[in-house]
C-alpha cells in the first residue's frame, strides 16, 4: 500500500495540484478584494484619522483628543446613548410585530397565499427608503391622512401633528426593519416540523407553552439573525431619523454627518464613526451572550 501522506504531498507538486490552488485563489479573490478595499482599508483610514488632533492650522498630532471630546460634550454621548436605546427598542418592537407575521407565513398560510404574503412584505422595498419615508410623512403630517381621518371621525378637534417625534421615528424605523426580520424568522420557522407543534399540544401544552417551549426555541437562530440585521440597519440609519425625527431627536449618524459635511472636522467624525462601530459590535456581542447563541452558529443556521 502506498503511503497516503507521500501521495498527497506528491500531488501538490504536480500540475493538477497547482491548478487546484490557482482555482481556489481565483475563487476567493473577489471576497478578499471586497473585504480589503471596502471594509478593512476605509476602517484603517478612519481609525488613523480619528487619532489625529489639530493643534494649529494644518498641524496635527496623534492622540485620543477626539474621543475625549466625545465624552466631555454631553450632547454627543447623550445622542449616542439615545441612539443605542432607541435602536434596541426598535429591534424589540420589530421582533414582536414580525413574529406573528412570520409564523403565519411559515406555518399557517397554505398553497398560493404563502408566496403572495411574502411578496406583499417585499413590495414596499422596491421603492427607495426615501420614498417610503416620504409616504409616512404624507400620512402623519398635520395636514396628512391620519390627521384628517381623526378629525373626520370626531376624535380630534383640530389638525394633529404626528411627525417629528420619537414616536414617528420609531414607527418609521420599525417599518424599515420589518422585512429584514420577517425573512430570517420565516426561514427559521419553516424548518419547524408541524408534528412538533402538534406534539406540543398533544402532551398537554397550551398556546403559550407551545410558543415558549417549542416555537421560540426553534426560531432562536432566526430571531438572533433578524435582530442583528435590524439593529445594525437601525443604528446606522440616516434618512429616517432626519426626516421623521424631531428637532431635538438627534440620531448619532446625524452627528457624524455634521462633523464630516457641515464642520469639515473629519478627525472628529471618524472618532464618532468608530464609536458607532464599537456600539453595534458591543450590543450584538451582548445580545448573543444573553441569548446563549454563538455567532457562527447563528450564521450557519440561517
Amino acid at each position: 500500500m502506498a503511503n497516503p501522506k507521500i501521495m498527497a504531498s506528491a500531488r501538490t507538486l504536480t500540475s493538477e495540484g497547482l491548478g487546484e490552488r490557482l482555482g481556489l485563489f481565483l475563487l476567493i479573490t473577489p471576497a478578499i478584494l471586497w473585504l480589503g478595499l471596502l471594509v478593512i482599508l476605509p476602517h484603517v483610514e478612519i481609525g488613523i484619522l480619528s487619532l489625529s488632533q489639530r493643534i494649529a492650522a494644518r498641524v496635527y498630532t496623534i492622540g485620543f483628543g477626539n474621543y475625549f471630546e466625545f465624552l466631555s460634550e454631553p450632547i454627543y454621548w447623550h445622542t449616542f446613548a439615545r441612539t443605542a436605546l432607541l435602536s434596541i427598542l426598535v429591534t424589540a418592537i420589530t421582533l414582536v410585530i414580525s413574529f406573528p407575521v412570520a409564523l403565519y407565513i411559515a406555518k399557517f398560510a397554505v398553497g398560493k397565499s404563502k408566496p403572495i404574503l411574502f411578496l406583499m412584505c417585499l413590495i414596499p422595498f422596491w421603492a427607495s427608503e426615501l420614498v417610503r419615508t416620504l409616504g409616512w410623512m404624507m400620512l402623519l403630517r398635520e395636514a396628512g391622512v391620519v390627521s384628517f381621518l381623526l378629525q373626520w371621525a370626531g376624535i380630534a378637534g383640530k389638525p394633529v401633528e404626528m411627525l417629528y417625534s420619537d414616536g414617528s421615528l420609531v414607527l418609521g424605523l420599525v417599518y424599515g426593519g420589518m422585512l429584514f426580520m420577517i425573512v430570517p424568522l420565516t426561514n427559521a420557522l419553516e424548518s419547524l416540523e408541524n408534528a412538533q407543534i402538534e406534539a406540543g399540544y398533544d402532551l398537554g401544552g397550551t398556546n403559550f407553552t407551545v410558543l415558549r417551549k417549542i416555537i421560540i426555541p426553534h426560531a432562536m437562530p432566526g430571531i438572533v439573525a433578524g435582530a442583528i440585521i435590524v439593529f445594525m440597519l437601525t443604528v446606522g440609519n440616516f434618512v429616517t431619523p432626519v426626516m421623521l425625527g424631531g428637532k431635538n431627536g438627534l440620531w448619532f449618524t446625524e452627528q457624524i454627518y455634521s462633523q464630516f459635511i457641515t464642520r469639515f472636522n473629519w478627525p472628529q467624525g471618524s472618532a464618532f464613526g468608530f464609536m458607532l462601530l464599537l456600539l453595534s459590535t458591543g450590543i450584538v456581542w451582548l445580545g448573543l451572550r444573553l441569548t446563549g447563541q454563538g455567532f457562527s452558529e447563528t450564521l450557519r443556521r440561517t
Binding site: E193, A195, Q196, E198, A199, G200, Y201, D202, L203, G204, G205, T206, K213, I214, P217, H218
Partner: peptide
C-alpha cells in the same frame, strides 16, 4: 375537548421529539 385536554397521547410518525430538549 381540545387536543391538549384529551387523555390521549400520540407517538408521531416522525416521533417529533423536541430536539432542543
Amino acid at each position: 375537548v381540545p387536543a391538549n385536554k384529551r387523555p390521549v397521547n400520540m407517538v408521531f410518525q416522525s416521533l417529533a421529539l423536541f430536539p432542543m430538549m
